[in-house]
Computed example of a mutant assay.
Amino acid sequence: MKSIAITKEVQSALTPNGVLQDLLEGNNRFINGNLEGADNAALVSQTTGGQFPKAVVLSCIDSRVPVETVLDQAIGDIFVARVAGNFENADILGSLEYSCKVAGSKLVLVLGHEACGAVKAACDGVELGNITHLLSNILPAVHLSADEVEGEANSSNKEFVAKTVENNVKLTMDRIREKSPILKDMEDNGEIAIVGGVYSLHTGKVEML
């Protein structure tokens, strides 16, 4: 059971690859029903004076993908930025930059998931209130997938949806590097890594892209 929060000294000694392996090991514990567990009261008291998370995860809002749980992370371990469709915008980029440049996180993980509702809606060209603008961020992935997958380019085509989920993660990673010189420089210098994965609703496993 985890009862000691990450300190600045511990965070500083971490490497991007080491953090990624830690998250994947946590995911394996989740899959195998062997969660580490945490003394939340102890962690709460230790983190009142500051936080030193090891990573920031950009994920979808989907209720079936509780990020800390599926990666078996405790209070103070990771930042989580959530938006339907797990894409970047100016506010998300600012949050990622804060996580890494200011607060010292070593990893940016863009985490998509199987059968994403936002991706399906984008595939079907849904237009509804502010959702229309939200889905416009996913359309580049839809268009890319239409050139890569045979069959209908809508949510009835499971292969098309799956490819769009993957492409959305990959394009989001590309745009993070393009739109954030801060994060790109940090990655180029080996201070952080920007990686992507897709969570399976059927197995609970995170598959890295």
Rank of each mutant, 00 (worst) to 15 (best):
A146K: 09
F87S: 09
C123E: 09
S105A: 15
K205G: 01
Q21Y: 06
D147N: 14
I92C: 05
H143F: 10
L128R: 11
V126W: 03
V169T: 03
K2D: 08
D188Q: 09
H202Y: 08
A55I: 03
Y98R: 04
I31K: 10
F160A: 01
G129T: 12
A74Y: 09
H133T: 15
G85Q: 04
E152P: 01
S3H: 14
I75D: 09
G49E: 15
N17Y: 13
V70R: 04
V44W: 04
P181Y: 07
N34D: 14
V169C: 07
M1L: 14
H113N: 13
N17L: 12
V70Y: 05
I192Q: 03
T132Y: 11
A153C: 01
V10E: 15
D174E: 15
N167S: 12
T172N: 07
K163V: 10
Q21V: 03
G190C: 02
E36T: 15
E68V: 04
V206K: 10
V102L: 13
K158Q: 14
A121Y: 12
V169M: 04
M173P: 02
D39S: 06
D39A: 06
L139I: 15
N32I: 01
D188K: 14
A122C: 09
E159R: 00
K120Y: 07
A55H: 01
L107C: 06
